[in-house]
Nucleic acid binder design. Structure first.
Lengths: 140, 140
DNA sequence: CTGTATCCTTAGGGATACTG
DNA sequence: CAGTATCCCTAAGGATACAG
C-alpha cells in the first residue's frame, strides 16, 4: 500500500471520473454534502439508501484522499468531525445538476425539484459559454 | 426474473442515475457511441479499458433494456448489429460534457484528457451548438 | 465477426458487535 | 455519537473456449 499512485485503466476523462467517484456510494455522500447540508457522520447514516457504517467510513476516507472532501474538528464539539466539500468537490455541481435534470426527465418516480432545475439551466447557459471558451483555450 | 420492476434504493434522482449507468462500464460504452462514433461490437472491444466479451454483451443488453441505446441490423451486412444512442442516451451529453470538463481540470497528471478534449472540440463543435440550442429550448 | 456459455476469482458491500 | 473491526456473501467482473 506504499504505492500511492493509482493505476487507471486509461487516461480518458470519463474513466477518470468513473474511477474517482463511480462506486455505489460516493456520489450519494457528495449529494448529501452539496444539496442536503449534511456535515456529520451520523447524518449520512440516516439517508434513505442506508449506507452501513464501515462503508461510510471507508468512502469518507477515500473521498478525502481523492481531495473531494475535507475533515475538520467541530468547533463546538471536539469529538465531532465536520465534513465539507473542497473546491474540487464543489466543482462537481454542474455535472450533478445535469444528472438530476436527466433523471428528472426520465424517472417519473424521482422527486426532483423541477423549478430549481429550470432556473439552473437558465443561469447556466453562461457556464456553457465559459466551458466553450475553456475548450477553445485548451485546444490551442 | 419475471419481475421487470427494478427495486431502487431510493427515489433520489442521483441514485436513479447511479443505478442506471453507475457501473464500471456503461458510461464508457456511451462515451464510445457519443464521442468516438463507434457502432459495432468489435469496436467497443478495442477501447483502451479492455472490456471483456461477456461483460460487453451484458452491458449492451442492459443499456438497451434501460432505453439508452438501440440495436439495428446493419443495412450493408446482415450479420452485423448497429448500435446507436436513443434520445434518452443522447440526453446524457450535457452531463458527460460537465464530467469531462471536471476531469480535464483535475486530472492534470496526464496529458490525455486535454488531447481528448482537443479531439472532441475538433470533431464536435457542431454538436455543442446543437446542445446549446437545445438547452435554450428546455430552459424556457 | 458477433456474440454465448462457463468457470473462477475478487472486490465490494451488508450485518453487526465492539471501542473511545 | 463517531467511528473500527470482523465475518460473511454475493454480484461483478476477468479469461477463455466455443458457436452461428
Amino acid at each position: 500500500m506504499n504505492d500511492k499512485s493509482k493505476k487507471y485503466r486509461s487516461h480518458c476523462p470519463i474513466n477518470f471520473a468513473q474511477e474517482t467517484f463511480g462506486d455505489k456510494w460516493s456520489l450519494l455522500i457528495i449529494r448529501d454534502l452539496m444539496f442536503k447540508d449534511k456535515k456529520y457522520y451520523g447524518e449520512f447514516l440516516l439517508s434513505d439508501e442506508k449506507i452501513s457504517t464501515n462503508i461510510l467510513a471507508d468512502r469518507l476516507e477515500k473521498l478525502e484522499t481523492a481531495g473531494l472532501i475535507s475533515k475538520a474538528i467541530d468547533a463546538e464539539n471536539n469529538s465531532k468531525k465536520l465534513y465539507s466539500l473542497t473546491q474540487k468537490g464543489l466543482d462537481l455541481m454542474p455535472m450533478l445538476i445535469e444528472m438530476i435534470a436527466w433523471a428528472a426527465k426520465y424517472d417519473k418516480e424521482s422527486a426532483a425539484p423541477k423549478a430549481f432545475i429550470k432556473q439552473f439551466k437558465k443561469d447556466r447557459e453562461g457556464l456553457i459559454h465559459e466551458l466553450l471558451t475553456r475548450l477553445k483555450d485548451t485546444s490551442k
